[in-house]
Design a protein around this nucleic acid. Structure first.
Lengths: 193, 193
DNA sequence: CGATTTTTTGAATCATATCAACGTACGTGG
DNA sequence: CCACGTACGTTGATATGATTCAAAAAATCG
C-alpha cells in the first residue's frame, strides 16, 4: 500500500522491513465523501484513522443540540474518539469529512497485538500522545487566557492550512465562539490592518 | 523506597522484581514546603514528578502577569512541564506546592533508558498519556460548552477532593474564571439549594 | 498579635451571545 | 443549463454572563 502513513512512521521511528509489512497487513484504506460520517456518536470507536488525503472534523453535540468542534484534521494527522477507542465502549464523538477524504484504518485489536510485537510502535504512539497532550494543553491555555480575536490570530499563525481550507462555521466552533462573532472579528481585522 | 508510586505501577502494569529495583534506583524523594516552587518557568523540566503526599498546582503567567492554573495535582498523580520535558528546552510552567508535599523525582535521561530496558514501562506511560489526553479533551470541551457554574459543579462532581482541599482562587483560575465570579456562583448555589 | 492571604460584596463595564434577517455561493436534479 | 434548495457568511439590535476595580471582611500563618 502506498500511503503517507509509512513516511510518517519513518519520520518518528525506525522499523524493519518486516515490521512495516506487519503494519501494512492490518490496515485498510477507506474513502469518505464530503459531509459523510466516518464515526457516529453512540458507536464504539473500533479504529484509529490516519488522514492520507482531505480534511475532517470531529465534534460533540451538547444537550441543546449545538455542535462543538473538537478537532480539525488534515493530511498526516490521526483522528478518532480516543475515549471510546481505549475503553472500547460507546463514545460521544462524531467524525465527518469536510472534503472528500481518504483515511488509513487501524483496528483496535490489531494495534494492541502490534504493540507487543513492535516495541518501536509503542514508542511511536507514546510520543504521539505526548505531543498531542502538549498541543491540547496549549489550546486550553489559549481558550482561558486569550480573547476570541487573539485565538483566531493564533490559529492563523499556527495552522494556516486549517484557516484557509475549513469553513468559518467550523473554525468558529473550534475556537469556542459563534460564527457571528468570528465574522465580526474578521471584519475588524481586515479593516484595521 | 516506600512510595505510592510502586502501588500505582502495579495497578497499571506488571513488572518483575528486578524491573522495580531498576526504577527504584533512579528515583529520589523530594520535599516541597507549602508555597515553595518545584519548578520555575524558564528552567528546563528535567524530571517528571509523582505526588506521594500533598497537593500542588502548575500554572503559567501571561503578558499581564496574570497566573493561569494548568493543573491541580494530588497524591498518585504526575506533574511536570511536559513540553519542556520532552524537548529538554526551557519551559513556561511553574509548579508550586499548595500544601507541604512529597514527590518522587524521575529524571528524563534515566526514563529514556528505562523505556528501552522495560517495554512494560513504555506501555504504562503510553496509556497514561492517552488517559491524560482524554481527560484534557473533556476539560476543553467543558470550557467551551458550559457556563462557569456548570464547570464548577462538574469539578465538584468529578474531583471532590480538589474542590475541598484547594483554595478558591486556584479553583477559579483552573476553571478559567475570576475569584470574584466563583464567589458569586457559590453564593447563588448555596442560597438556591 | 500583626501581617498576609483568601474570600466576599457592590457598581460599572465589556466581550461575546442571541435572535432575526438578508446576501451569497454552490451543486444537484429537472 | 437553469432553477431551486441547502450550506455558508454577514449585519444589526439587544441581551447577558463574566470581568474589572475598589473596598472591606474573614481566615490563616508565623
Amino acid at each position: 500500500m502506498n500511503s503517507l502513513l509509512f513516511d510518517n512512521l519513518n519520520k518518528y521511528c525506525t522499523l524493519t522491513e518486516n515490521q512495516f509489512k506487519a503494519i501494512e497487513q492490518v490496515v485498510v484504506r477507506r474513502f469518505v465523501k464530503k459531509r459523510k460520517d466516518l464515526l457516529t456518536e453512540g458507536d464504539v470507536c473500533k479504529y484509529l484513522y490516519f488522514v492520507d488525503k482531505g480534511c475532517l472534523r470531529s465534534y460533540t453535540t451538547d444537550n441543546d443540540g449545538i455542535e462543538h468542534v473538537v478537532q480539525l484534521v488534515v493530511e498526516q494527522h490521526w483522528v478518532g474518539d480516543l475515549y471510546s477507542f481505549i475503553t472500547q465502549t460507546p463514545g460521544t464523538i462524531n467524525i465527518e469529512a469536510i472534503e472528500d477524504s481518504e483515511v488509513i484504518v487501524l483496528p483496535y485489536f490489531e494495534l494492541e497485538k502490534l504493540y507487543d510485537e513492535i516495541p518501536a510502535l509503542e514508542k511511536f504512539f507514546r510520543k504521539l500522545f505526548q505531543r498531542a497532550y502538549v498541543a491540547l494543553q496549549q489550546r486550553l491555555n489559549s481558550a482561558q487566557s486569550f480573547s476570541a480575536e487573539e485565538r483566531y490570530r493564533e490559529l492563523i499563525h499556527l495552522r494556516p492550512e486549517i484557516a484557509q481550507r475549513v469553513p468559518l462555521i467550523y473554525i468558529a466552533s473550534y475556537l469556542g465562539i459563534t460564527p457571528e462573532s468570528l465574522s465580526r472579528i474578521r471584519k475588524l481585522m481586515f479593516s484595521k490592518t
